[in-house]
Simulated assay, not measured.
Amino acid sequence: MRFLIFVWITLAVAAAGSAWYAMQPSRRVPAWLWIAACAALLVAFAISFVMLGDSSEKTLLSIALYFLNWGMVAGGAAVCVGTIAGLSAALAFKR
């Protein structure tokens, strides 16, 4: 479990560092659009996770999609959170 937490934090920090480095002070509107896109992806991941958890039908496809969704939620959430944090910090401190 500690390894998975380490991987999640590493993904988030890498995304934050990449977003900070890639942010150009003259391009503030695209940064806000990426923040909005990442927030929408986080909401989509959360909704799909909750909706898939309520499914009582247990077929091989639903089980495979369930595990795929877990992987997407864990990895996608880390990248989205890191990108939002990196771009927010860059918007605040890069001039």
Results as ranks from 00 to 15, higher is better:
residue 36 A to W: 01
residue 36 A to L: 09
residue 36 A to E: 06
residue 36 A to P: 01
residue 37 A to M: 04
residue 37 A to L: 08
residue 37 A to N: 08
residue 38 C to T: 05
residue 38 C to L: 05
residue 38 C to N: 14
residue 38 C to Y: 03
residue 38 C to F: 08
residue 39 A to D: 02
residue 39 A to M: 10
residue 39 A to P: 00
residue 40 A to I: 00
residue 41 L to F: 12
residue 41 L to E: 13
residue 42 L to A: 05
residue 43 V to L: 15
residue 43 V to C: 08
residue 43 V to F: 11
residue 43 V to I: 12
residue 43 V to K: 03
residue 43 V to A: 15
residue 44 A to E: 08
residue 44 A to G: 09
residue 45 F to C: 08
residue 45 F to R: 12
residue 46 A to L: 06
residue 47 I to H: 05
residue 48 S to T: 07
residue 48 S to K: 08
residue 48 S to Q: 07
residue 49 F to H: 11
residue 49 F to C: 04
residue 49 F to E: 11
residue 49 F to Y: 06
residue 50 V to F: 14
residue 50 V to D: 13
residue 50 V to E: 12
residue 51 M to D: 14
residue 51 M to T: 13
residue 51 M to F: 05
residue 52 L to S: 11
residue 52 L to N: 12
residue 52 L to F: 06
residue 53 G to Y: 08
residue 53 G to H: 09
residue 54 D to W: 08
residue 54 D to R: 15
residue 54 D to N: 13
residue 54 D to Q: 15
residue 55 S to A: 15
residue 55 S to G: 09
residue 55 S to P: 00
residue 55 S to E: 14
residue 56 S to C: 05
residue 56 S to W: 04
residue 56 S to T: 07
residue 56 S to Q: 13
residue 56 S to L: 10
residue 57 E to W: 06
residue 57 E to Q: 08
residue 57 E to L: 10
residue 57 E to N: 11
residue 58 K to I: 08
residue 58 K to G: 05
residue 58 K to F: 05
residue 58 K to Y: 04
residue 59 T to A: 12
residue 59 T to F: 07
residue 60 L to P: 05
residue 61 L to W: 11
residue 61 L to A: 14
residue 61 L to P: 03
residue 62 S to T: 10
residue 62 S to F: 02
residue 63 I to Q: 14
residue 63 I to E: 15
residue 63 I to P: 01
residue 63 I to C: 01
residue 64 A to H: 03
residue 64 A to L: 06
residue 65 L to H: 02
residue 65 L to P: 01
residue 66 Y to A: 11
residue 66 Y to S: 12
residue 67 F to P: 01
residue 68 L to Y: 11
residue 68 L to M: 09
residue 68 L to W: 09
residue 68 L to A: 14
residue 69 N to H: 09
residue 69 N to Q: 13
residue 69 N to W: 04
residue 70 W to E: 15
residue 70 W to K: 10
residue 70 W to T: 07
residue 71 G to P: 05
residue 71 G to A: 06
residue 72 M to A: 13
residue 72 M to K: 11
residue 72 M to L: 14
residue 72 M to F: 08
residue 72 M to I: 01
residue 72 M to S: 10
residue 73 V to F: 13
residue 73 V to P: 04
residue 73 V to Y: 13
residue 73 V to G: 09
residue 75 G to P: 02
residue 75 G to R: 07
residue 76 G to L: 05
residue 76 G to F: 01
residue 76 G to T: 02
residue 77 A to E: 04
residue 77 A to V: 00
residue 77 A to K: 00
residue 77 A to S: 14
residue 77 A to G: 07
residue 77 A to C: 03
residue 78 A to Q: 01
residue 78 A to M: 02
residue 78 A to I: 01
residue 78 A to Y: 00
residue 78 A to F: 01
residue 79 V to C: 02
residue 79 V to Y: 00
residue 79 V to W: 00
residue 79 V to D: 00
residue 79 V to M: 08
residue 80 C to M: 12
residue 80 C to V: 03
residue 80 C to K: 01
residue 81 V to Y: 10
residue 81 V to C: 14
residue 81 V to H: 06
residue 81 V to T: 15
residue 82 G to R: 02
residue 83 T to N: 10
residue 83 T to R: 07
residue 84 I to T: 06
residue 84 I to Y: 00
residue 84 I to E: 03
residue 84 I to M: 12
residue 84 I to V: 15
residue 84 I to Q: 03
residue 85 A to Q: 07
residue 85 A to Y: 06
residue 85 A to P: 04
